[in-house]
Design a protein around this nucleic acid. Structure first.
Length: 944
RNA sequence: GCGGGUGUGGCGGAAUUGGCAGACGCGCUGGUUUUAGGUACCAGUGGGGCAACCCGUGGAGGUUCGAGUCCUCUCACCCGCACCA
C-alpha cells in the first residue's frame, strides 16, 4: 500500500468523512473499551452473574502456530467467520465461549528457532506476542482471560497427565471401551482371564495348552500388561527423517517426504511410544455418521481408517515348515489363486535365504530384496505401475485344491498391511493381473460379471464360475454368497477365519526433538516403566544449550544429551515411593511428544483454564461440552482449515473418546459441528510459455508484463513469496481499518469457498461504511445527522434486512448478509436518511461484522453501554412484505409483463389482473388460456 | 485409478424449497462536485437487434406449465488418497 494512497484517502474531502485515520482512532478506542469492560468474558457455572437459563454456544477457532512470520491474510478468514456468529449469538442472549490460544510446541517453532539461532522458548513467546497484537487489531470478541499456550507449564502438566491415563489403561473389546489397567489386573488375579503360552489373553475359555498367570516370570507378566496398554512401546518400522532428526507419524508423510520441509523419509525399525488408536477404529468410523461435518472430511477420515471386510487364510508351505497367512477381501476368488506374493520385509524371505530349498536362486533373491528394501518410498512411487519381483523357489499348498502354487516376493505387496503377504488372483485384481502378465503366470477367470462386460480383468462383483473342487463348490453363487461360503468352509476346515482389516495403524507418538512435552515416565535397569505421580507433574522440559539436532542416520533424542537430567533416582523424578524406593536409579524418557499433543485437548482446557487440580473441572466440562437439551455435546461450532481433516481432527477424536471412556468427559465426540473456511488464493500472471510473472512486474489494467510488453494471462494461484502476491493484513488495516478488512474478507464469497484476494475490490465495502457513516454523521460539521420522520418504505426494508441478516448469520452466509446491508444503506440514502431509532437498530445488526464503527454509532446516538452486548433487534413478520406486490406474468414460458396487486389478493384476483394485462391479452388474442398457474408471491404462468 | 467438490457477465459472486437468471460489490461508460488528477455523489452496464423480439448459467439430451436448480450421458478444473490385497 503506498503512502500516497493513504494520504489521499485521509487528507481530501470533508473534515468528518469516514477515513482510514478516523477508522483507526475509532477502532483503538473501542478495543480498549471492550478490554476494560471485559465485555466478552464467558461465565462458568458458579461465576457471579452466570445465567443458567441462557443457551450455551461454544464457538471454537483452530488455534494458530505462532510462527515467526506473523499473521497472513488467509489466517483471519475463519476467525472473522467465527467472531461474527459469536457476536451475534451473544447479542441473542447466549452464553458464548469464544476463546483463543497458542499451539506453541512442535516442529515449526523449533525449526524457526534453529534458523534464527535463538532458543525456541524465546522465539515462540515473541511470536505469540506478535500474533496476539495482530489478532487484537481485528477486534475479535475473544475471552482473553482464558488464553493459554500449550507450552505453559500449567497446561502441559495435564497433557502429560492425559498420556499417563492412556498408559494406565487398556481396551476391553467385550464392552468396546477403554478401562483402567488396574481392572485388568483384578480380572487376572480373580482368574477371569486365561493365557496361552505366548501370553495372549482369552476371556472365553482356557486355551488347550494354556498357562497360569503365576507360571509367567515377573518380566513376562510385565510385558503382557505392557502389551495391553493404550500407550505402549512398540518395535515398529517407522518413518525416520534424517534431516529433521526425528521419526514421523504416517499422517505426516506425503509422497515419501516429510510434510514439514519436504525432506526424504526412510523406513527403519525402532522402539517408539505408540498409541493404540486402532482399538478405537470401529468407533472412530461409526460415530462419523453422527457428526455435522463437511462430507469431504468425513469421507477422508473414513478412508484413512480404511475398514475392509474379508478373511485371513492360511496356506501351508510345501518345501519348508510353516505356512503363509494372508488377508483377502475377496475370499470368493480363492479358486482363482495362481500364485502368492510376499513383501520384501516378510519373515519368509529371511527363512528362504537361511535354508534355501532346491531350485532357489539365493543370490538373485537377496539382490532383489536388498534393492527393494533400500528403494525409498519416493522411488517406489515414481515407478508407478511397473511391477518387479522374483520367485522364491518355494510353493504353498492351495487349501482347497491341494495344488502347489509358486510363492514370489515383490514390493507391490506392502509389509505394513494385512500380513504382508497376498494370495494373487490375477483374473480379478488389476495389480495381480499386471504382475501375472509380466512374469507369464497363469490367469484363471472365476467371477462372471452380471452383465456382459468386455473386460480383461473384472474386479467387480458377479457370479462365481470355474469354482469347483472336491473340497469346495461355490459355482453359481453371487460374490456376497460366495464370500460367506468360503469363510464358513475355511473356519470349519481350519484354513482361516473371517476378519475385518483396517488401514489405520497405531499412532507413533514419540519424537527425537527438543521442543515438545517430555514423557512423564522413567525406566529402571531391567526396562520396567514407572509413571511420574500426579503431584510431581509436569516433568519440566529442561533447558538445553545446544538444541540443534545432529543430522544422523540413527535416531538420537536431543534430551539424551543431558546425562545428569536423564540419569536420576525414582525419588528425584517423582515416582510414587509405593511403586519404587526413592533411591532406585532410573532413566528418564528422552523422547518428546509430537506437536499434535497439545492440540488434542486444548478446547477442553478453555472450559476451565485456571484449574490446577484437574485437567478440567467437572461442572465446567459438563456445562460447555456435555450433552444438553439443545445439543448433543462437544464444541457447538468448530471453524478451521480443511488441511486438518485427517491428523488433528482424528487424533483429537481419539483422545476425547479415551477420556470419555475413563469417565473424565461427558461427551464422546469433541466437535459436533465442523466448518472449513476456504483457501485464500491470489491472482498471478502467466506468460504464453506457462511461466509465471511476479505480480509487481505486471500492468494489471492491460494485462501485460511491464519489462517486455508481453501479454500475460491472469490466473488464480496460492499466495507465495516468489510470485510476490502475498498480502500483509497489517498493511490493509492501516489503509482501510479493521472493520473494512473484516467486511471485505466476508464479502468476497461463501465462507467455505476458495477465493482470490483482490485488493482493488476492498474499496467497495469501504464505501459502504462511508455511506453508513454519512447516515449518522454530517461530514462537514461532524454533528449527528438523523431524520425526524419515519419513512414507511425504509422501515419495511429495515425489518426485512434485520430478518435476512439474522437468518444469513445462522447459516454462515455472510456475503449475502453484507449485500443486504449494503442494499439497505443505499435505499436509506436515497430516501434521505434514517431516524435515530432506526439507526440504532441498524448499528446493532452491523455490529457482528463491523463492530468498531457500530459501537461508534451506538455511542453517538446517545446509548450508554456497549453495542457489542446490546440486544439483537426484533422484526415484525407483517412488515416483511409490502402492501402491494409486483408479480411477473409468463406466457409461453417467457415473462411478458408484470402486474401490481395487493399482497393479500386471492388467486382469482391475481388471474384476473394477469389476463387483463395489455401484452398478455394481446398474445392470447382473445382466446381463453388452457391453464393459469399462480405461485403465490412469485409468478403467474399463463398457458395458452 | 478411487473418493469429495466446482463450472453463472470483463472480475468476485447472488438466486436457502423447481418460479422474474445475473442481487450486491469491483471494473467500465457518461455526468455532477472539484483549479486538475484522485476522493465523493448521480445514472447506465449479459450478448444481439432501431424495435417487437431472439439468444444466454461448461457441453448434449430428457422430465416439467416452468430447470442454474431434478434425471441421463459428457467435458474441464480444484482438493484429498493412492500398489491397502
Amino acid at each position: 500500500m503506498s503512502d500516497q494512497a493513504d494520504v489521499r484517502r485521509d487528507n481530501s474531502g470533508p473534515a468528518h468523512r469516514y477515513s482510514s485515520r478516523l477508522a483507526g482512532a475509532i477502532e483503538e478506542r473501542w478495543q480498549q473499551a471492550w478490554a476494560e469492560a471485559k465485555a466478552f468474558r464467558a461465565l462458568n457455572p458458579g461465576d457471579e452473574g452466570f445465567d443458567a437459563a441462557a443457551r450455551r454456544f461454544y464457538c471454537l477457532d483452530m488455534f494458530p502456530y505462532p510462527s515467526g512470520k506473523g499473521l497472513h491474510v488467509g489466517h483471519p478468514i475463519g476467525y472473522i467467520g467465527a467472531d461474527i456468529i459469536s457476536r451475534y449469538r451473544r447479542m441473542r442472549g447466549d452464553n458464548v465461549l469464544h476463546p483463543m490460544g497458542w499451539d506453541a510446541f512442535g516442529l515449526p517453532a523449533e525449526q524457526y528457532a534453529i534458523d534464527t539461532g535463538v532458543h525456541p522458548r524465546e522465539t515462540t513467546l515473541k511470536a505469540i506476542d506478535t500474533f496476539r497484537r495482530q489478532l487484537q487489531r481485528f477486534g475479535f470478541s475473544f475471552d482473553w482471560d482464558r488464553e493459554f499456550a500449550t507450552i505453559d507449564e500449567g497446561y502441559y502438566k495435564w497433557t502429560q497427565w492425559i498420556w499417563l491415563q492412556a498408559w494406565s489403561s487398556w481396551y476391553d473389546h467385550r464392552v468396546e471401551r477403554a478401562r483402567p489397567i488396574s481392572e485388568l489386573i483384578t480380572a487376572i488375579e480373580t482368574n477371569e482371564v486365561w493365557f496361552d503360552r505366548e501370553g495372549c489373553l482369552s476371556w472365553t475359555r482356557p486355551p488347550e495348552d494354556g498357562k497360569m498367570w503365576e507360571e509367567f516370570t515377573k518380566t513376562e507378566q510385565r510385558d503382557i500388561l505392557d502389551g495391553q496398554r493404550l500407550a505402549y512401546l512398540g518395535e515398529e518400522t517407522v518413518n525416520w527423517c534424517p534431516k529433521l532428526g526425528t521419526v514421523l507419524a504416517n499422517e505426516e508423510i506425503i509422497d515419501g517426504r516429510s510434510e514439514r520441509g519436504g525432506h526424504p523419509v526412510v523406513r527403519r525399525p525402532l522402539r517408539q511410544w505408540m498409541f493404540r488408536i486402532t482399538a478405537f477404529a470401529e468407533r472412530l468410523l461409526q460415530s462419523l455418521d453422527d457428526l455435522n461435518w463437511p462430507e469431504s472430511t468425513r469421507t477422508q477420515q473414513a478412508m484413512w481408517i480404511g475398514r475392509s471386510e474379508g478373511a485371513d487364510l492360511r496356506f501351508r508351505l510345501v518345501e519348508l515348515e510353516g505356512e503363509i497367512e494372508v488377508f483377502t477381501s475377496r475370499p470368493d476368488t480363492l479358486l482363482g489363486v495362481t500364485f502368492m506374493v510376499v513383501a520384501p520385509e516378510h519373515p519368509l524371505v529371511e527363512q528362504v535365504l537361511g535354508e534355501p530349498p532346491d531350485g532357489c536362486d539365493r543370490e538373485r533373491i537377496r539382490d532383489y530384496v536388498n534393492t527393494a528394501k533400500n528403494r525409498s518410498n519416493i522411488d517406489r512411487m515414481a515407478d508407478g505401475k511397473n511391477k518387479t519381483g522374483h520367485p522364491l523357489g518355494i510353493h504353498a499348498t492351495h487349501p482347497a485344491t491341494g495344488e502347489p502354487i509358486p510363492v514370489w516376493v515383490s514390493d507391490y505387496v506392502l509389509a505394513g498391511y494385512g500380513h504382508g503377504a497376498i494370495m494373487a488372483v490375477p483374473g480379478h485384481d488389476e495389480r495381480d493381473h499386471a504382475f501375472a502378465l509380466k512374469y507369464e503366470l497363469p490367469i484363471f477367470e472365476v467371477v462372471k460379471p452380471g452383465e456382459e462386460i468386455e473386460d480383461e480383468c473384472w474386479y467387480g462383483d458377479g457370479i462365481a464360475i470355474n469354482s469347483w473342487c472336491e473340497q469346495l463348490d461355490i459355482n453359481g453363487l453371487s460374490t456376497a454368497e460366495a464370500k460367506a461360503a468360503v469363510i464358513h468352509w475355511a473356519e470349519l476346515e481350519g484354513h482361516g477365519i473371517g476378519r475385518t482389516s483396517w488401514r489405520i495403524k497405531d499412532w507413533l507418538f514419540s519424537r527425537q526433538r527438543y521442543w515438545g512435552e517430555p514423557f512423564p515416565i522413567v525406566h529402571t535397569e531391567d526396562g520396567t516403566h514407572y509413571p511420574i505421580s500426579k503431584e510431581h507433574l509436569p516433568v519440566l522440559l529442561p533447558v538445553l544449550e545446544d538444541y540443534e539436532p545432529a543430522v544422523s542416520e540413527d535416531p538420537q533424542p536431543l534430551l539424551g544429551k543431558l546425562r545428569r537430567w536423564v540419569e536420576t533416582t525414582a525419588g528425584e523424578a517423582g515416582v510414587d515411593p509405593a511403586l519404587l524406593p526413592p533411591d532406585t536409579p532410573v532413566h528418564r524418557e528422552t523422547n518428546t511428544m509430537p506437536g499434535w499433543a497439545g492440540s488434542c485437548w486444548y478446547f477442553i482446557r478453555y472450559c476451565d483454564p485456571g484449574n490446577d487440580t484437574a485437567f478440567v473441572g467437572e461442572t465446567a466440562e459438563r456445562y460447555w461440552l456435555g450433552p444438553n437439551d439443545a445439543a448433543a455435546g462437544g464444541v457447538d461450532l468448530y471453524i478451521g482449515g480443511a488441511e486438518h481433516a485427517v491428523m488433528h481432527l482424528l487424533y483429537a477424536r481419539f483422545w476425547h473418546k479415551l477420556l470419555h471412556d475413563l469417565g473424565h468427559l461427558s461427551s464422546d465426540e469433541p466437535f459436533r459441528t465442523l466448518f472449513h473456511q476456504g483457501l485464500l488464493t491470489s491472482f498471478a500472471y502467466k506468460r504464453d510459455d506457462g511461466s509465471l510473472v511476479p505480480a509487481d512486474e505486471v500492468d494489471e489494467e492491460k494485462s501485460i508484463e511491464v519489462a517486455t510488453g508481453e501479454v500475460v494471462e491472469r490466473i488464480v494461484a496460492k499466495m507465495s513469496k516468489s510470485l510476490r502476491n502475498v498480502v500483509n493484513p497489517d498493511d490493509v488495516i492501516a489503509e482501510y481499518g479493521a472493520d473494512t478488512f473484516r467486511l471485505y474478507e466476508m464479502y468476497m464469497g461463501p465462507l467455505d469457498a476458495s477465493k482470490p484476494w483482490n485488493t482493488r475490490d476492498i474499496v467497495g465495502v469501504f464505501r459502504f461504511l462511508q455511506r453508513a457513516w454519512r447516515l449518522v454523521v454530517d461530514e462537514d460539521s461532524g454533528d449527528l445527522s438523523v431524520q425526524e420522520t419515519l419513512d414507511e418504505d425504509v422501515e419495511r426494508a429495515l425489518h426485512r434486512t434485520i430478518a435476512k441478516v439474522g437468518e444469513d448469520i445462522e447459516r454462515l452466509s455472510y456475503n449475502t448478509a453484507i449485500a443486504s446491508m449494503i442494499e439497505f444503506v443505499n435505499l436509506a440514502t436515497h430516501h434521505g436518511g434514517l431516524t435515530a431509532e432506526q439507526l440504532d437498530r441498524f448499528a446493532r445488526i452491523l455490529c457482528p461484522f463491523a463492530p468498531h464503527i457500530a459501537e461508534e454509532f451506538h455511542a453517538k446516538l446517545g446509548n450508554e453501554g456497549l453495542c457489542s452486548v446490546a440486544v439483537w433487534p426484533d422484526y415484525d413478520e407483517s412488515m416483511l412484505v409490502d402492501e402491494s406486490i409486483e408479480l411477473p406474468v409468463q406466457v409461453k414460458g417467457k415473462v411478458r409483463g408484470r402486474i401490481s396487486v395487493p399482497a393479500d389478493s386471492t388467486e382469482e384476483e391475481v388471474i384476473a389482473a394477469a389476463l387483463a394485462h395489455e401484452r398478455v391479452a394481446e398474445i392470447l388474442g382473445g382466446a381463453e388460456p388452457r391453464k393459469v398457474i399462480v405461485v403465490p408471491g412469485k409468478i403467474v404462468n399463463v398457458i395458452p
